[in-house]
Design a protein around this nucleic acid. Structure first.
Lengths: 109, 109
DNA sequence: GCCAATCATCGATAATTTACGATGCATTAT
DNA sequence: ATAATGCATCGTAAATTATCGATGATTGGC
């Protein structure tokens, strides 16, 4: 994960509509949701949401698959994992003590 | 961690200057760095960087401490940890299999 | 073939963010 | 006391982002 990559993921998630859409898609793994379902959930116009979705796709957080005339969207967990590893690496380099609280909270899952 | 909180942290990190400043501060834990040092590292004007720093502080990612006429900045690792837990929880609810790759990569630290 | 449905793209506009120099406010040094 | 340092804030201009309706392209059903 290069810095530019991390920045585009952070930017993509740094908007209420997009963050919520991504979280919704995670909760619907692995079936995914159609764009229309996501539009409805967002409460925004179709065109506005479409641009938001494009941001998520461009950042690699969402993978689109054409199914008939529907477009099925799926969350790409690997992209999120990549971001978290990127962020964690800063504090892990030679200073595991800083990351221990993080690991402690995550291993509960 | 509430959604608004996560959003402000994501927004704060979603800028090259701020992400780099935060990473620099993490690497300088626990001594911290003066604002002047950060300004110099950023290559931006003092006033511009000051507003960036304010964003980080407002998001809780950076803690400022007045020391004489210098302002010592420190990274708040807990804020980062909070964000990561927030993001991880979406995929961990009843589906540990999605988060296992993440944990596998993080435990190497 | 034709109509309806699904979704991306195209302007246009409003809102937000970014950037800078100038200024102001403390605090330290002389 | 005065000057200088360190940093925040103000005003402003430029760039980016967000939002929408309208339009276009593709697909499925009739």
């Amino acid at each position: 994960m290069i810095t530019d990559n991390a920045l585009s993921i952070l930017s993509a998630l740094a908007h209420p509509t997009r963050l919520e859409a991504f979280r919704l898609l995670v909760r619907h793994e692995p079936e995914g949701l159609s764009t229309g379902d996501l539009v409805e959930a967002s409460g925004l116009s179709q065109s506005t949401f479409s641009t938001h979705l494009a941001v998520l796709v461009k950042a690699g957080l969402v993978l689109a698959e054409k199914r008939g005339r529907h477009q099925i969207q799926r969350a790409n967990i690997d992209a999120l994992t990549g971001l978290m590893v990127f962020l964690a690496k800063d504090c892990c380099q030679g200073r595991a003590e800083l990351c221990e609280p993080l690991l402690a909270e995550l291993t509960c899952c």
